[in-house]
Design a protein around this nucleic acid. Structure first.
Lengths: 208, 208
DNA sequence: ATAGACTTGTTCAATTTTTTAACAATCTTT
DNA sequence: AAAGATTGTTAAAAAATTGAACAAGTCTAT
C-alpha cells in the first residue's frame, strides 16, 4: 500500500487497462463487460471490477462499461489530462532514442528541455526541443520548474545530478541509469527502468 | 511462486545484489556482512540472508560473505556464466540505441544478429553485428537457433513476429513493444519493458 | 587455548497483499 | 413487466512478504 491508499499492483495495472481500452475503441467497440475484458486481458472479471472500484463507479449493471468513458476516466486517474513539464538529462544514444520514440504528450508529460554535457550536441533539436548544456540546468529549472526528469546518464553522474534536481524541486524521476536513487527524499517518486536487470532476470528464467 | 519454486520477488532482487556486489568489489572491499549490506541496499539483513538461502550457503558465521565469491555465485545463479544467443528485431531509433547501449555479454546474452524490414539498414554494422533483412529471419534462426529475442518493433508487427519466433524455438523475449505477448505458450518467458506504462505510473504518482 | 564478539542459516510467527468467490441491487432488453 | 445480464461490494481464502529470534559455527584477540 502506498500513500494514496491504493496498492501498487492496482496502479501498475491501470496503464494496461488504458491501453486495452484504447485498442477496443479503435476496433469500433463502444461497450464491454468486465467478463469480456477479463478474457481479453487474461485477468479475472472480479479483479477488474475490484481495481476500478478503488476509484469510483464507472459501469452500469446489466450493461457493462462504456469504453470511451472508462478510458478517459482512467486517463484522468493517471493524470494524463494534466500534463506535467519534464526534462531529459543525457542525450546520448539512449536519451536521443527515448526522445524520438516516446510520445510524452499522450502519457502525461510535456518535454520542455534536454540537457547534455557534450558541447557538440548543444543547440541540436529533437522533436522541436533544443538540447542545452548541462551547466544551464540550474537556471532553466528555476525559470521553468519542471516536475519530472528522465535520467539517461551513466551511473557515475547520476548521484550529483539527482541531488541537484531534487533541490530544484523535481518530484519525479524516470530513471534509466543504474544508480539507485535514494528513496529517503519524501515526496520524490521514482520509476526505474533497468535494462540490465531485466536481461539478467530473463537469463535466470531461461537457465532454470 | 514460479516453476523453480523461488518467488519472483527474490529473483528480481538478484540483479540488484549482483550490481551492488560489483560496486563493493570495485571499492576494493573483500568481505561484507548481511547487516552492512542491508544498510547500503536499504533492506533488512534478514531478507538478504533469506534470499540467499534459497540458493545455498554462501557465507560464514562470524565472518560474513566474501564479496567476490558471492557475486560470482549470484552470477552463476542468474546464468551469466553461460551466455545464450540472442537476436534483436527492429533497428529503429530504439533498437539501435539498445544495441549500442547495452552490454549483452555481461548480462548473460550474446547478440548474434539484428533484423529490420527497411532495406536501407541492411548490411550496416552495430557493434560488429550486421543488420539483416527480416525476410531472412527464418533461415537465420534455423541455422543459429537463438534462444532469446529483443523486440523493438511497433505493436502492429509484434504478434506475427512473435508467433514466428516461438515456432522457431525462441524461448525468451525482452519486449519493448506495446504488444502483450500471450502467455499461453508454455516454456516461453517474457520480460516486458513498457516505457509508456512507466511514464503513466509516474504521472499517477505525481498527481496524487 | 579460551572467551567473547560476531554472523550465518533457519525456523516460526505475524503481517500484508493479492486473489477469488459470491450475491444483492440495479440496469437493459424485449 | 419479466427475464437476463452485470455491476459494486463484501467477505473469505490463498499467497507472498516481512521481521524477529536463536542455535550453531567462526573469527579475533589476548
Amino acid at each position: 500500500m502506498n500513500p494514496t491508499g491504493i496498492s501498487n499492483s492496482v496502479i501498475k495495472r491501470l496503464p494496461r487497462y488504458y491501453r486495452f481500452l484504447g485498442e477496443l475503441k479503435k476496433e469500433g467497440m463502444t461497450r464491454i463487460s468486465s467478463r469480456e475484458l477479463s478474457e481479453r486481458m487474461q485477468l479475472t472479471a472480479s479483479q477488474i471490477r475490484q481495481d476500478l472500484n478503488c476509484f469510483g463507479e464507472f459501469g452500469q449493471q446489466g450493461y457493462g462499461y462504456n469504453i470511451e468513458l472508462l478510458q478517459s476516466e482512467i486517463g484522468r486517474i493517471l493524470g494524463l489530462d494534466k500534463p506535467q513539464n519534464a526534462i531529459l538529462i543525457g542525450v546520448g544514444n539512449l536519451g536521443k532514442a527515448i526522445a524520438h520514440y516516446i510520445n510524452f504528450e499522450s502519457k502525461g508529460f510535456h518535454l520542455i528541455g534536454m540537457f547534455d554535457a557534450k558541447e557538440s550536441l548543444v543547440g541540436q533539436m529533437v522533436r522541436n526541443v533544443p538540447i542545452r548544456h548541462i551547466s544551464t540546468l540550474d537556471e532553466f529549472c528555476r525559470e521553468n520548474m519542471p516536475r519530472a526528469a528522465i535520467l539517461c546518464i551513466p551511473k557515475e553522474a547520476s548521484k550529483e545530478i539527482c541531488d541537484q534536481l531534487i533541490k530544484l524541486g523535481v518530484k519525479g524521476f524516470l530513471n534509466f541509469s543504474h544508480y539507485d536513487i535514494a528513496l529517503d527524499h519524501p515526496g520524490v517518486e521514482v520509476e526505474n527502468i533497468h535494462f540490465g536487470d531485466s536481461l539478467m532476470t530473463l537469463s535466470y528464467k531461461l537457465s532454470n
